[in-house]
Every structure is written in C-alpha cells, then in structure tokens.
Amino acid sequence: MASTKLIIAALGLLAVGATSAAAQQKPAVKAKSTATKAKPAGATVSAATLAAGKTVYTQNCLTCHMADGGGVETMNPPLGKTTWVLGDKTRLVKVLLNGLEDVEIDGEEYRNVMPAQPHLTDQQIADVLTYVRNSFGNKASAVTPAEVKAIRAANKK
C-alpha cells in the first residue's frame, strides 16, 4: 500500500518534470518559428529540394559543419537550432554571400572564418539553406531562389 503510494507520487513528479520541461521549451521554439513568419514548413519543402540542398551541403559545407551539422567546438559553429539558421532569412543568406568572421554565436566564439560562397547560384543557396533549415533537428520555412536573388541584388553596393 505504502509502496504503491510512493510509485504514484514518483510518477506524478515525473509528469510534473516533463510538463515543466515542455513548457520551458515551447515558447522558445514558437518565438523562433514566428520570427521566420513561416507557413507550415514541411508543406512547402519538397524531397527534391532537400536532396538538391544536401548535394550542395556535401560539396561546400560538410567539411567544417560536419555530417551531423554539429560543427567543431571553438572553431566552426553548429547549424542545429541556432538563431542564425532559424532566424532572419536575409541575415542567413548574407552569411553565404559575404562570409562571416569574428561573431559570437549563441554565447560561443568560433575561430575559423566562414568563407563567402560567391560561386553558388541563387538556386543552390536557396536549396542548401532550405536543407539546413530542415535538417539537424531544425524545422523552418524554405528559402526561395527569388528571395536569394533579391537579397543578392540589395547586397551589391
């Protein structure tokens, strides 16, 4: 009798723990996805786009960001669940167009430079960013070639 009560109490605690953890995580996820003003993400991303994006990733990003998108501590930042990947698309596209250096990312410093990728077409940039935004635990809206084209045009001074 007493042991049953204990088990119930323990289960209750577990449930409280689980819901509070979920409650803590939810707003953060919501904030990120509303920031990108996404339509329901999965619906707009085709398997073909993801496959094309993965090819671009393998040829241009894989070495530093690695197969699991986890990057290399202190050197190359991870791509999973960071504000840089899930947040403002214009900022993200500009990382590929201009490269990135000396920026603290989510409280960590990374020492290698991110080289600019001027050899990538609008289509390739759209594909790889859509792939990254929907891999490594990420789920966010697609990036379109038209968006990349507009950002590239505005990026030229």
Binding site: N60, G99, N112, V113, P115, A116, Q117, H119
Partner: peptide, 8 residues
C-alpha cells in the same frame, strides 16, 4: 586573399 574560399 580570402581565407578558405574556393579557388582564392
């Protein structure tokens, strides 16, 4: 000229 950039 551009560190780690393809072809630089």
């Amino acid at each position: 000229v551009n560190d780690r950039q393809k072809g630089s």
